[in-house]
Design a binder for these strands. Structure first.
Lengths: 337, 337
DNA sequence: TCTGGCACTCTGTGTTCCCGAGTGCCAAGT
DNA sequence: ACTTGGCACTCGGGAACACAGAGTGCCAGA
């Protein structure tokens, strides 16, 4: 009986604080929620909760505010994800359905998520490592320049300009293209380096310089930077909120790809809905913010993650519901294309 | 003599206000600049300048602040663009040189500009209308789906998935590809619709459904949205500045592609350095901000625009120098690739 | 274990007051 | 016709202060 009520009190505090943005006191608590006890009892419970580190008071004789630890407990045990309304589901579906290519999917997703949660949305591009080669194209641009294009089964297109050491005629390029496609078609990107390792040796000697140049660009484009691409939207939603830490730091973090990568990346289970609260964050500029993230992917493969970043004081059930729903719909879209 | 000094006073007011961010009074003015007259004289001049609308005072008995009209005069007649230091030039060069594709160029440019000016940078993607077709590629994804890829001479790649009405075999696709390339190679994008208008009729009857489907996607991808792509960076730089209008509005405007398009687009001369100050702005959310923009392009063709957005109270000479320099370097890079 | 009561401690807000910077104007000087 | 020093006036912003209100901790009694 004892502990049960304390948990109810904590839940009530979190809910009230999230909705009012003001420290909540014992009296207001018994009025708004019908716990069957008096405010004095609540005060005792609150004292205990504070001692255990779940809540804190900004000053003596102000109400209580949840700590990060308090939010953590709330998220883990006291709340359940709130599903979206059917109108919202409908909106998601129609909005995402119009996407024409992978860039468009990502763009629409991030905007949708920002609008839905009224917070900052973050979407990581589908990783290349799980995709396979659909087609390789070599397009002569001029005598000594090629454009190299790699198309993956996820609809992603990688392109690079290749500077050639020598003038190369069209038929050699065609030959290399055919060879590359034969060698790589359907091959997982992770296996590409192995597949092409001995490729120059299997070619006539006069084709080798060309092949070597193209391959070096190909390999470089794979390892390069593209797992690291992340976009965000909804920065305007930060303007209203007040952070313990400066707004500037948050904006800086958002523009720093590396920080976002670590933020989204450092989660053990890709498929689950994960929440990172305030000081649990690795980056100091993002203390005072929480991240709600989920993995998405086509079919059974998880490709990447998406989520929203907001003030620690956020409505976790609703946000988690939105993130989960969007992740599912994006997965559907990607699986279908 | 008279007017000359008034202009000097206005210049001094702008410079002081930009550097101190406080309304500047007559006394401070004679101290910091050696105008050879007394503060009383300055006061008279200031009264005239105020009556003419170049400066204003926030309250009675505060110093003066330049109005938008005052900044306008300053930019047009009282200042000269300040060139960058050689260290800065060097930095630009090396930073931009590493770009691997057009996305990378744009990304690097916008970040560079944001960092250089410590303001929000805005870069418009090179317009497709001035570019020409380098290559068209059709890649079978499955029996009834094609990926259509269009490569332009500016290194831009457009991609679309095409849903086919029927199962189509590979040789027909190859044939269509060859026909398309023969027809469109080197053709300006604006002329593409004309060029392909009668193309189905020139094909054997059995190829026409396929051709029609692909062409409709092609045409759609041209008119669609890609002239409208704009990216920005440096939002964190907004955090420090204080706007007359809310920070939120500015952030919202930045995320609204349409607004940015109009902002950058509505300038008569594409090649000149243009400055739009405060209330000269079309969008209400951007009053209180100024835009400094320049066109860029490869060779003699202007492709698009880039610029920075900052508080009306900005250091125009320095900002204009940075924008101009970056525009030039980007043009160089694009011309070379 | 809960409850009502009570004294205490804060913060936030409103009020008042005053200093100082800056102006406008005027009469005198060049 | 300008310029200058002087002077009275205005107003914003900060400091000092008081006060109401909300909230707490604790204690004695049910």
């Amino acid at each position: 009986m004892v502990d049960d009520r304390k948990l109810a009190v904590l839940r009530a505090i979190v809910e009230d604080y999230v909705s009012t943005n003001e420290p909540v006191g014992s009296k207001a608590l018994v009025e708004r929620h019908n716990l069957g006890v008096s405010s004095a009892t609540i005060r005792n419970d609150m004292a205990v909760l504070e001692e255990q580190g779940y809540i804190a008071q900004p000053h003596t004789s102000a109400g209580r505010v949840p700590t990060d630890k308090g939010y953590r407990l709330f998220v883990d045990r006291l709340s359940q994800v709130k599903p979206l309304s059917s109108a919202e589901r409908k909106a998601i579906e129609t909005f995402l359905a119009g996407a024409v290519d992978i860039d468009d999917v990502v763009m629409r997703t991030v905007r949708l998520l920002a609008q839905l949660t009224r917070q900052v949305a973050v979407v990581q591009y589908p990783t290349l490592t799980n995709s396979t080669v659909r087609h390789v194209e070599l397009v002569p641009l001029s005598e000594r320049r090629l454009m190299f294009v790699l198309i993956t089964n996820t609809g992603r297109v990688e392109q690079r300009v290749v500077e050639l050491p020598d003038v190369v005629d069209e038929t050699r390029v065609a030959h290399l293209r055919a060879t590359l496609n034969a060698c790589l078609d359907g091959c997982g990107l992770a296996r590409v380096p192995d597949m092409v390792a001995d490729l120059p040796e299997r070619l006539p000697a006069e084709d080798r310089p060309l092949a070597a140049t193209v391959l070096s660009v190909l390999l470089e484009s794979l390892v390069d930077r593209h797992d690291e691409k992340i976009v965000f939207a909804g920065a305007a939603n930060l303007a209203g909120a007040d952070f313990t830490v400066g707004l500037r730091d948050v904006l800086e973090a958002l523009e720093e790809q590396v920080v976002l990568m670590r933020l989204l990346g450092e989660t053990s289970d890709l498929s689950a809905l994960t929440v990172r609260i305030g000081s649990e964050n690795p980056y100091t500029g993002l203390q005072g913010t929480s991240l709600v993230a989920a993995g998405y992917g086509s079919g059974d493969k998880q490709l990447a993650r998406l989520g929203v970043l907001g003030p620690t004081r956020m409505d976790y059930p609703v946000t988690m519901g939105a993130v989960r729903a969007v992740a599912r719909y994006v997965s559907q879209i990607l699986a279908a294309s």
